[in-house]
Nucleic acid binder design. Sequence first.
DNA 1: ATGCGGAACATTGTTACACAATCACGCCGG
DNA 2: CCGGCGTGATTGTGTAACAATGTTCCGCAT
Lengths: 224, 224
Amino acid sequence: MSPRRRDAPPGPTLAEQLAERLRERILGGELAPGEPLREQSLAAEYSASRHTVRSALALLVATRLATAAPYRGIRVAALDHDALIALQQLRTALEGEAVRLLRERYAGRAWPAAVTAPIDAALDELAEVCARHPDDWTAVERAHSRVHGALVDAAASPRIAEAHRGLDGEMLLLLLHVRPHYSPAGLVDEHRRLLAEVQERGELAVREHIAHSTELLLASRRAG
Amino acid sequence: MSPRRRDAPPGPTLAEQLAERLRERILGGELAPGEPLREQSLAAEYSASRHTVRSALALLVATRLATAAPYRGIRVAALDHDALIALQQLRTALEGEAVRLLRERYAGRAWPAAVTAPIDAALDELAEVCARHPDDWTAVERAHSRVHGALVDAAASPRIAEAHRGLDGEMLLLLLHVRPHYSPAGLVDEHRRLLAEVQERGELAVREHIAHSTELLLASRRAG
DNA sequence: ATGCGGAACATTGTTACACAATCACGCCGG
DNA sequence: CCGGCGTGATTGTGTAACAATGTTCCGCAT
């Protein structure tokens, strides 16, 4: 129909495609945290120029999936204990405010179906994935991420939603390498409860949910 | 002394220096919102290669002082009404959570001097700037920005602080071109009040403060 | 052995030039 | 007035090279 939109125009740039491929390799665990991403080898591997690889790596750094140090190269991000705490605090800020905005908007009333439907759909899909592919941790992770993403999107605050999306990659990376002590069933239950309670209890439910996940992640890290 | 730190090593890259210079030109108002940043002319102007300019521009885009569209160039960011609202919501999320963390840490007690001192210092400097250079709006802006920055830093949550710093440039740009109906004295008073109340009233004081500034900004925009 | 200086080497940052892909604009015909 | 079409402008990508910096390892003195 319309020849082309104004904001998603000519298909992704090669650098963006490359960044996306690297992102998948990182989130798939193929590229381990701390591992250096050498420009030459990537350029050779993907038959791209070093400049293009540099652009792609700059994009990864911008999304915090990789870290850069001048003249020392770019490495897959490695999240330590402190980074986990700090990241969860930021998530709490964003998701908490999103829920606060939602409750403010529908003060006292129940959230309309148009708002809750995408969230419930994401939850259903999480349950589906956990039931069908309980061992495909990457798939479970992504479904989980979409539940939280849907909740934040519901607040219709673009910048909060975008900031939250910016945390997505990091969160997936974190969960990948510090696999929490979740059974998929437990994961589904917790989020079902979160969504059941959030309209009544608001930010508090979000805080408890994230705080609990932080506990599990820390425990998981200690266990190795 | 120590030969060199591990995290601030070889002095900024040329691309970073260039990005910083452009940032100053944008925040100084020399480069207007919406104005395109052409790679060739900048390369000629700064005697740098186009690639280096591209890297610098990518940094500006990452901090949202400029926006990029493939094959259509990079332009100085222009914030409209909706962007203002969304930005203030995100600020509220970050500053609100920072204050919440502070109050949680010193539950009931007064915040120790080590925490309040930098904030008060920033406030004093804002008062100083407003008294001495009430017409240097850029200087007032920056001093104002540092007050909020100090408050957020006090929470000692690195990611919240960093996300907040990421908003700094945008906020300065916004204030530059939508100069609110503040007298410098009023600005100082409001922030004095905010800091006086924040220990007692917490997030609520922050919300009111930001909401009020949003009102002024919107009024200022309507006034042209 | 241990620790140091310094020479190779590896990697990134920067430049120059060229070409392809895409966009912006104006012209022309219907 | 409108829409297709070229033409120039601008960005995206490639190739090659050099400069700047980090890294490694070797020999040497202690």
